[in-house]
Computed example of a mutant assay.
Amino acid sequence: MISTAYAAGAAAAHGPFYMEAHFWVDVAFLLVVALAWKPVSRAIAAGLDARAAKIKSRLDEAHKLREEAQEMLATYQRKQRDAMKEAEEIIAHAKAEAERLAQQAAKDLDAAIKRREQMAMDRIAQAEAQATREVQNLAVDVAIGAAQKVIGESLSPAQTTALVDKAITGLSGKLH
């Protein structure tokens, strides 16, 4: 801008201020600035408003994404808690099943031991009965042999024949 001292000095030297070219250049400049101010300020305001709207939409989107992320985090935490609870239930069930199977195995083992013990006792009883029969049979054989020897040495052949005939006749009454 032109200083007032210069304008006053120029007016005195050349004539009135409105006749100076500098004055009209300054007026034209101010007029162009005044006329351009409104559209330029609107464009600047519109640009700033658009940028503010863009920033606001980004902030809204970021807020929305944050809420979705928090919801997803809560969902996954809930799923993790449910999975942990389910895993604990599975472990508890497995422990209970293992305990039940161990008890059943112990019962089965006891039953098997008792069966084998009974089978061994039965075999022992059979072996004792067989041994007793063998001893009895051996005793009978020894007694028969001894009786034959005694009878053979003490009886005559006629007495022996009479005893055999008597035994044969008495045999028919014992068999029926």
Rank of each mutant, 00 (worst) to 15 (best):
M1L: 14
A11L: 02
A12K: 10
H14M: 12
G15Q: 05
Y18V: 05
M19S: 05
A21T: 14
H22L: 09
W24H: 11
V27F: 08
V33N: 04
R42Q: 12
A43P: 00
G47T: 06
G47F: 10
D49A: 15
R51C: 06
A52R: 06
K54S: 13
K56E: 14
K56M: 06
D60Q: 11
E61N: 12
A62Q: 09
L65W: 00
E67G: 05
A69E: 07
Q70R: 10
M72V: 08
A74C: 09
Y76L: 08
Q77S: 12
K79Q: 15
R81W: 06
A83S: 08
M84E: 15
K85A: 14
A87T: 08
H93Y: 12
L101Q: 08
A102M: 08
Q103W: 01
Q103E: 12
Q103V: 03
Q104Y: 00
A105D: 06
A105F: 03
A106L: 12
L109V: 07
D110V: 06
A111I: 07
E117D: 13
M121H: 11
I124Y: 02
A131V: 01
T132C: 10
T132E: 15
R133N: 12
E134C: 01
D141N: 10
I144C: 07
A147C: 08
A147Q: 04
Q148F: 05
V150C: 01
I151H: 02
S154N: 12
S154L: 15
L155H: 03
S156D: 08
A162G: 05
L171R: 02
S172Y: 09
S172A: 15
G173Y: 03
L175V: 14
